[in-house]
Computed example of a mutant assay.
Amino acid sequence: MSKLISELLPVIGHTVVIYLFLMIALRVAGRHQIGQLSVIDLVVLILLGSAVETAMVNGDTSLAAGIACSGTLLILNRLFTWLIQRVRPLNRELNGDPITLISDGRFVEENLRRAGLTHEDVLQALRARGLADVSEARFAVMEVNGSITVIPRHAKVHRSSRTTKEAT
């Protein structure tokens, strides 16, 4: 039994390192790639899985190594989800903030560059919501999940006079 555990420890260690590397690498890649997968993005994600599989299991293709690797990934995912929900700065660092892409009918060029989007990407989101031109949008915001929310210029904006206190 201890021989099995000692053989699986490298699998668990490699899995942890690769998980952390991919978390950081995908965060650096940006929300656009994750939130709106193109065919190329999907191929890259599939190939990433294949490319790191051998390294995670340390060349061991046994059932035990596969279970150790899968179990480690599930535990790490649950741990990071728990941490992100409870540690606000970590949540903000990993998930980011919404990014304003259009403000008062004009593109916010700096934010488009930061989000890795083109005018055409945003215009596609506008057309999907029935707007023909950027001037018809009051705001367009890239949400933390990569989706684009559009507020038409003619939409009524409801403001609350009540302030809410953030939980600490």
Rank of each mutant, 00 (worst) to 15 (best):
M1W: 13
M1Q: 04
M1P: 02
S2A: 14
S2C: 11
L4S: 07
E7S: 06
E7C: 03
V11E: 03
H14G: 01
T15H: 08
Y19G: 01
L22Q: 04
A29S: 14
G30N: 01
H32D: 11
Q33F: 03
Q33G: 08
I34D: 00
G35P: 04
V43H: 05
V43E: 11
L45G: 02
G49P: 03
A55N: 06
A55V: 08
N58M: 12
S70Q: 10
L76W: 15
N77S: 07
N77I: 01
Q85W: 12
R88A: 15
P89S: 10
L90R: 11
N95P: 01
G96M: 09
D97P: 00
L101K: 03
I102G: 02
I102H: 00
D104K: 11
G105Q: 10
F107W: 08
V108L: 13
N111E: 15
R113C: 07
R114P: 00
H119W: 05
V122K: 04
V122H: 03
L123T: 02
Q124G: 06
Q124V: 11
A125M: 05
L126E: 04
R127I: 14
R129A: 08
L131K: 04
M142W: 00
T149A: 08
V150F: 14
V150G: 04
V150I: 15
R153G: 01
A155K: 10
K156S: 12
V157P: 02
R162S: 05
T163Y: 14
E166N: 06
E166V: 12
A167P: 00
